[in-house]
């Protein structure tokens, strides 16, 4: 048994301290240690994007990170999107519902997090920019058309007002 490593990480505004096996992937850490099961595992080799989360403001694949690599970082997962106090969904979540941007919904948390980063950087993306930002996320159900519509709607709803950024827990 290799030595456990100490990790301090902030997820959705809450700071956790844990000792972990160095080989534990970040997505397994989030799901099984922190019980944040909204981030999904689709391929574990960095192709499908289902496990996308935000790390220090950037969308990353949590299956391609070790939990130990997240030490000292600030993470956001799908659980952090909804406003827990008001119960209100994030505009991106609502847009995906409004435009039927999901079917089975397994890939959806990954798409939402990639979209979060996109709209924080670029509040009014073109369709090409939407595609470029989301081409690392695979969906087997929708054929993507409704996803593009959802992102457009989310952008429209949030333009003018500042979208809750990817930095910090917003």
């Amino acid at each position: 048994m290799t030595a456990l490593q100490h990790v301090t990480v902030t997820v959705n505004g809450i700071t956790y301290e844990r000792s972990v096996d160095p080989r534990l992937s970040l997505v397994d850490f989030l799901r099984h240690e922190l019980h944040l099961t909204g981030t999904h595992v689709g391929c574990e080799h960095g192709v499908c994007g289902a496990c996308t989360i935000i790390k220090d403001g950037m969308a990353v694949r949590s299956c391609l990170l070790l939990a130990v690599q997240s030490d000292g970082t600030n993470l956001q997962t799908v659980e952090g999107l909804r406003n827990a106090e008001t119960g209100e969904l994030h505009p991106i979540q609502q847009a995906f519902i409004d435009e039927h941007g999901l079917q089975c919904g397994f890939c959806t948390p990954g798409f939402l997090m990639s979209t979060l980063e996109l709209l924080a950087d670029n509040p009014s993306p073109t369709d090409q920019e939407i595609k470029d930002a989301l081409d690392g996320n695979l969906c087997r159900c929708t054929g993507y058309q409704s996803i593009i519509k959802s992102v457009r709607l989310a952008a429209a709803k949030t333009s003018g007002g500042k979208l809750a950024g990817t930095h910090g827990s917003a």
Partner: peptide, 27 residues
């Protein structure tokens, strides 16, 4: 050595790479 790990991590997950130790340059 692991830097960003975007090529190494799939190989670790697949057990195609099985180093005794990882040296993370992230800090």
């Amino acid at each position: 050595i692991i830097a960003g790990g975007q090529s190494l991590m799939p190989m670790l997950n697949l057990r195609m790479a099985r180093p005794d130790a990882l040296v993370d340059l992230g800090k």
